[in-house]
């Protein structure tokens, strides 16, 4: 708990100091005659600095930043001219839908393949699956997304190129709208699911291999239990616990992959928003995305750690 609070506080502090510490940052650019956003006029520069509170002590600025943050104020988007929290709130449901769908698609596949592969370690099926998933796991996801667009959206024409729904479509009922959203979701969710499945598979397989030498399997075999029962009811169940940690790590994978996949498919989630904010130099939104995504990853790991303690008494202090 204490370490979780420390990490979140560290992220919040990083988010405050990075723009003020790095050269070429938006704030120091105001003072730099060589930068494109240099404010030449002395009095208007002072006015701008006063507006952003830059003329005050760093400590003062920091406490104001913390106070605003506690009240859910992350600043105002330069591009949308709206509160950053509002912009993030508009985009977050799309990311949750995309990541949630991909996880649902991937978890079963990755686990079953991992159990099967680990149980038959070193055999042909294992070697084939291992090579396949290792390649997928390391395949740059933005390139995979581009291949998917080219093959399935352009050449075969079975899925839309980009976006999350058909623009300007006349709403013809709830069902049609759901179908439209699902139709746009299929391709990006599949690409994301491949990444998740590969990760899940690798951990499940390693964990399954770890169970192979266990005494309880020898005993089970000695008392005449069938292969299927040993594999699923005994080994797989015990191998499941380490893969719970994966659930937490998956959020880290999800954040990275979502930034790339949403960008490649122009899917209107938080990842795409971060990309857009970079292109638009919309620094408040960029920082908001950083804070939301990194706190999500840290929180997921914290929750998994708590769940772990409940499920496995050996890890409790």
């Amino acid at each position: 708990m204490a370490s979780y609070v420390v990490v979140v506080f560290f992220l919040i502090t990083l988010n405050f100091f990075l723009p003020r510490a790095l050269p070429g940052a938006p704030i120091s650019a105001l003072d730099d005659p060589r930068s494109e956003t240099y404010v030449g006029d002395e009095s208007s520069r002072i006015a701008v600095e006063n507006y952003y509170g830059l003329d005050r002590q760093l400590g003062d600025q920091y406490t104001t930043y913390l106070e605003d943050l506690v009240q859910g104020d992350l600043g105002t988007s330069i591009r949308f001219n709206a509160p950053v929290t509002e912009v993030l709130g508009d985009r977050l449901p799309w990311t949750l839908l995309l990541v949630g769908t991909a996880l649902a698609l991937a978890t079963g596949v990755g686990m079953v393949a991992g159990v099967h592969s680990g149980w038959r370690r070193g055999r042909r099926a294992d070697k084939g699956l291992l090579a396949l998933f290792l390649a997928i796991d390391n395949f740059p996801v933005f390139f995979l997304a581009s291949i998917a667009v080219f093959v399935f959206a352009v050449k075969l024409g079975v899925f839309p190129l980009s976006g999350a729904r058909t623009p300007f479509s006349e709403s013809s009922g709830v069902l049609a709208e759901i179908a439209d959203v699902a139709y746009h979701l299929a391709l990006p969710a599949t690409v994301l699911a491949l990444q998740f499945a590969a990760f899940q598979y690798l951990v499940m397989r390693a964990s399954m291999v770890g169970e192979l030498e266990s005494d309880y399997l020898v005993l089970g075999r000695a008392k005449g239990l069938g292969d299927r029962a040993l594999k699923y009811r005994y080994a797989a169940r015990n191998a499941l616990l380490p893969s719970l940690t994966v659930a937490g790590l998956q959020v880290g994978v999800a954040v990275t992959a979502a930034i790339f996949v949403e960008t490649a498919f122009a899917y209107p989630g938080v990842g795409r928003l971060m990309f857009e904010s970079v292109a638009d130099r919309d620094y408040p939104v960029m920082q908001g995305c950083f804070l939301l995504l990194s706190v999500a990853v840290v929180t997921a790991n914290f929750v998994v750690e708590l769940a772990y303690r409940r499920l496995d008494p050996r890890t409790s202090p």
Partner: peptide
Amino acid sequence: AVPALPLLIL
């Protein structure tokens, strides 16, 4: 604990 990609982007 800090995820690498969002930090690197920022």
